[in-house]
Write a protein that binds this DNA or RNA. Structure first.
Lengths: 188, 188
DNA sequence: TATTTATAATACATTTTGTTTGATATTTGA
DNA sequence: TCAAATATCAAACAAAATGTATTATAAATA
């Protein structure tokens, strides 16, 4: 009977997640009080403290769930693709993932917790690509440090994704992919 | 006799800036109390409240100074350069600026206020390039939306700059410029 | 169904913030 | 240089928010 199995705990955490996101749509995270969250969630404050030390831990926990889901999305991949194909595939997954979790990303973006979000996306994206592109022919031939390539493209892709979200999807996913396709050279 | 001219005010704010940065090197911004800052700064708490409503305003004020200095750095520019030349020039200025203000950037980066920093850099960079590249020949010919190009490259450059900083300048500025030079096509 | 345990209710101590007032020190501007 | 203006300090205090402890109740488990 651990933290994860008891239905009451799962339910409580779920409500806290939803309530925090709801509040973050109208109020900056910095200004949200633990008592605000509990009041809105109809959960006793002592119950909150039974699970989290402070509101930062709550947000951490929420983002941890996001991470698990993104990593899962990144799991399926093809081997032996060119660096460009890989980058395009990465962008496609990122867009789908962000689109699916739109509510969460929007709420966090609306606040000044973007650092949090960007850090998290950069981290996952960079780790993922570091593994996949390690022995990629194009990259090896380019003689550029892998980390430089990864950081450059990861930053570009994530900025594109997040601004796409804040612009209320001004372009379709397909248009976006087409544009980026033109921006990335066939051979790095 | 406004806010800016009285020597006592200038001095107080300067000390508050320095103290906040000092504390941020050892402690997360979220966990820093106004009373911590005042104690360390040897400034009365009521004096703090005479200038700022809360610690967020203090950080805002500090970053506002950064913004002024970056905008000044970006002022001098040549006209009629290719889009690639422009991007390379932008990167060069960004690196110099961040290098010069290393202490401030590092302190803020160490905390989870990167969102703050990234937002700020993205904002300045995107505005600057939107103006400069508006009628750029290469861009017009590419038939890609200007904002897409800008967001893609701004994200890439800033991620490169910030990770360069956190990596304690593993590469020289010249090496970095050379690498990025290879990553950006002559014609967009 | 018996047992375990999460939640609620309540009360309370502590911490931190935010405000006020009057004395003191510093800066300004003539 | 000096009077006027005002920023800072010191201290005390009110209010807000956090954090903890206890007991009763409700819900989940096995």
């Amino acid at each position: 009977m651990n933290e994860k199995t008891d239905l009451r705990i799962i339910k409580t955490k779920k409500i806290l997640f939803e309530t925090l996101l709801k509040l973050m749509k109208h109020k900056n995270f910095d200004k949200i009080k633990i008592s605000d969250i509990c009041e809105e969630a109809l959960i006793n404050r002592s119950t909150f403290y039974a699970h989290y030390q402070d509101k930062y831990e709550l947000l951490d926990d929420l983002v941890e769930d996001l991470k698990v889901s993104l990593l899962k999305d990144l799991e399926n991949y093809e081997n032996n693709i060119s660096s460009k194909e890989y980058i395009m595939r990465l962008l496609s997954i990122l867009i789908d993932h962000i689109d699916e979790k739109k509510d969460i990303y929007s709420a966090i973006l609306l606040n000044n917790r973007n650092g949090f979000l960007i850090d998290f996306l950069i981290d996952v994206t960079e780790r993922e690509s570091a593994i996949r592109l390690k022995n990629n022919e194009d990259i090896v031939k380019s003689q550029l440090p892998l980390e430089i390539i990864i950081r450059f493209y990861a930053g570009g892709l994530i900025n594109i994704c997040l601004s796409w979200l804040t612009q209320k999807e001004k372009y379709t996913k397909e248009e976006l992919l087409e544009y980026i396709n033109k921006l990335i050279p066939e051979k790095i």
